[in-house]
Design a binder for these strands. Sequence first.
DNA 1: CCAGACGTTGTT
DNA 2: GTCTGG
DNA 3: CCAGACGTTGTT
DNA 4: GTCTGG
Length: 353
Amino acid sequence: MTSSAPVPTLIAPSIRTRVSGSFGIQSIRSAIGFTDGPTCSARGRGSRTASRPVMMNGAATRGRARVSMGRMTRYMPATMRLKRGRMGTMCGRYATTRARQELLDEFQVQVDAAGGEIQPDYNVAPTKQVPAVLARAPKDAPDGEEAVRQLRTLRWGLVPSWAKDLSIGSRMINARAETVHEKPSYRRAFAKRRCLLPADGYFEWYVLQQSDDPAEGEKKAKRKPQKQPFFIRPKDGAVMAMAGLYELWKPRDDEDADWLWTCTVITTDAPDDLGRIHDRMPMVVRPDQWDAWLDPGLTDPDEVRGLLVPAMAGTMDAYPVSKAVNSVKNNGPELIEPASDGDNSGNHSGALF
DNA sequence: CCAGACGTTGTT
DNA sequence: GTCTGG
DNA sequence: CCAGACGTTGTT
DNA sequence: GTCTGG
């Protein structure tokens, strides 16, 4: 019976941050979100507790932040821009398991340019190679040559052409649909290098906290927040053609090196049913828009933006899965199986929808 | 002019 | 590469 | 997205 | 805490 199990509730990230180890004041200021302002030369070993003002609508409330360090307390004006840690969720993991031939057929690919094998991947993470569909004129073709629709594998995490090394790619895994046309890192690719990234569905992690157990009485035992992975996929089982951009990059110091092909996933608002638990999702391109989306000759940002339509409510399934997906070392169909009773220490007792 | 960023997620 | 901030 | 590391000195 | 690697 799961009816007596504590009900999980969605909580926001803590506004109190505890840091331990050897830190300077800069670390603490960073921990509480200040990226600018007065500095202090104090250093030391031990643990600190820092608190910061609550942020609403992207701006800090008025007031002061207190940073206590043993007997010393520093106050700082709370007027600086706040920077959050990587506590949120986005499209950072997905599954793509269609076989090569299925992809070639489904997307009416003209040229199979994907070297090597295309293996089902139930745990795609940033920096991995992913199958992609794109349209591009042949390498040595004269101007005006027709673009050819091709299947390739790309590295997830877009590396802009100006990057000194490819490490920036792991931070360029998503592009917001609302701003992608104007961001320096993306707009060139948005105009000329769009692609489709086939997916079965994507993962997202809820931050869960069990409600207080009355049996514990006055003891306010603070439980560690737990993250529960969910898999989200189209109800009809159709392939998700995620809107993507690709880029070609070559190290500056090695003209003979091969071009590195990289990509990013465009995100958009999630419809209400999904938005109750998570307000962003990958942008999906409808089949009747695939041709236009892939057309490298369509470069007007307004026209391209017109192809991007947020998903309709009620079209996706979302259900909890095993925490095995947390580790990129795990891979297999079991990662997208609904979590069974007993999985994850009973964090969740069933589907939300 | 040069230096430095170039991105996303979240909202008690 | 190109834009913003100082 | 999560997991896991997170540094320096010197140089037989 | 922040950053990198997968």
